[in-house]
C-alpha cells in the first residue's frame, strides 16, 4: 500500500509537470500576449515592448520556462496582472463554487444513472432495458451547452421558475448542475447497466437464488456491489472531464466558478491565472483517480494495491 501510494504520487508529480509544460507551450504559441491585450489596440510598439520587458516576456522562451518551473515548484504561480494579486489566490477563491457545481452534478448523475442502470440491467434485452438504453444514448448525444440554453429558454425565460444566470442561492444551482449532470448520468447508467447485466449472469447470483433469497436480496446482496467496480472507475476518471465540462456550463450560466474564470483568463492572456487554474484542475483529477482506485480495492478484495514482487 505504501509503495503503491509513493509510486502513484511520483506519477502524479510527473503528470503535473506535463500539464504545466503543455499549458506553458500552448498559451505562448497563441497569438497575442498579455502586453498587447492589456494595452489595447491603440498602444504604440514602444509601450508594448516596455510592458513585455517588465513582465519578462522578452526573455528567451526556455529561460521563461525554467524560471516559471522553479516558481511552480516553490508553489508560486505568479501575479495575475488582471486582478493584481497572486493568481492561485484568485483561482482558489472561485474553486468552491466549481466544487459545489460538480459535486451536485455528480450526485444527480449517480442517483439517476444508477437507478436507470438497475432498471435496465436487471432484465437485459427486455423492453424496459431497450427503452432505457435508447433514452441514455439520447442523453449522451445531446451537446450540454445546447441543453443549457434550452433550459434557460424554457425554465428561466418561459416559465420564470428558476434564475438563468449567476450564483449565490440553491435555485441558481439547479439548471447548471442538471445540465452538467446529463452526459454523466447517461454514462453512469450505461456502465452500471452493463455491470449489473453481467453480474446477473454470474454463477454466484444463481447460488444466491438457490439459497432462497428474494430477487431484491439477490440484487442488493450479490449484484449491486459487484457491479459498482467499473462504475467507480469511470466516475473517478470522469470527474476530471466533469471539471472540463464545467468550464463550458459555467460560461453558459455565468456561474462564478473556476471555469468561467479560466475562460476569461484565456481571453485576457492572463498566463498566471490560466496556469494556476490548470494545475489545480490537474491535481483534482489525479487525487480523484487515486481515490477511485483505493475505493475499488476496498470493494473488491481481489484488487491488490501492492507492487508485484
Amino acid at each position: 500500500m505504501t509503495y503503491y501510494l509513493v509510486k502513484r504520487l511520483a506519477i502524479g508529480l510527473l503528470t503535473i509537470w506535463g500539464v504545466v509544460t503543455a499549458v506553458f507551450v500552448v498559451i505562448r504559441f497563441a497569438p497575442g500576449d498579455q502586453a498587447t491585450v492589456a494595452l489595447g489596440p491603440d498602444a504604440t510598439v514602444e509601450q508594448v515592448e516596455a510592458l513585455r520587458h517588465s513582465l519578462g516576456l522578452d526573455r528567451p522562451l526556455l529561460v521563461q520556462y525554467f524560471s516559471y518551473l522553479g516558481d511552480v515548484a516553490a508553489l508560486d504561480f505568479g501575479e495575475s496582472y488582471r486582478y493584481g494579486r497572486p493568481a492561485m489566490q484568485a483561482v482558489l477563491e472561485r474553486f468552491p463554487a466549481t466544487v459545489t457545481l460538480t459535486l451536485t452534478a455528480t450526485v444527480i448523475a449517480l442517483i439517476a444513472g444508477l437507478l436507470l442502470g438497475v432498471l435496465a440491467g436487471q432484465r437485459p434485452g427486455s423492453l424496459l432495458d431497450r427503452a432505457v438504453s435508447t433514452f441514455t444514448l439520447g442523453l449522451q448525444a445531446v451537446p450540454p451547452f445546447w441543453v443549457g440554453i434550452m433550459f434557460i429558454l424554457v425554465f428561466a425565460l418561459q416559465f420564470r421558475m428558476l434564475p438563468s444566470a449567476g450564483g449565490g442561492s440553491p435555485a441558481h444551482l439547479v439548471l447548471p448542475a442538471v445540465t452538467l449532470s446529463i452526459p454523466f448520468t447517461a454514462l453512469v447508467a450505461r456502465i452500471s447497466r452493463s455491470g449489473i447485466a453481467e453480474a446477473m449472469g454470474e454463477a454466484y447470483v444463481q447460488t444466491a437464488r438457490s439459497k432462497g433469497l428474494t430477487e431484491r436480496s439477490v440484487l442488493s446482496g450479490h449484484v449491486l456491489k459487484n457491479s459498482l467496480i467499473p462504475v467507480v472507475t469511470v466516475v473517478g476518471l470522469q470527474l476530471g472531464n466533469l471539471l472540463g465540462g464545467a468550464v463550458v456550463i459555467e460560461t453558459v450560466f455565468a456561474w462564478p466558478g473556476l471555469g468561467s474564470l479560466l475562460v476569461s483568463a484565456v481571453g485576457n492572456r492572463d498566463f498566471a491565472v490560466v496556469q494556476a487554474a490548470t494545475v489545480l484542475i490537474a491535481l483534482c483529477v489525479i487525487v480523484l483517480n487515486l481515490t477511485a482506485d483505493i475505493v475499488n480495492a476496498k470493494l473488491d478484495p481481489r484488487i491488490r494495491l501492492e507492487a508485484p514482487r
Binding site: 454463477a203 470493494l299 478484495p301
Partner: peptide, 11 residues
Amino acid sequence: FQDPLAALNPI
C-alpha cells in the same frame, strides 16, 4: 454447483 470459484461471490 459445479465450479465453486464462479459459484461463490468473489467479494
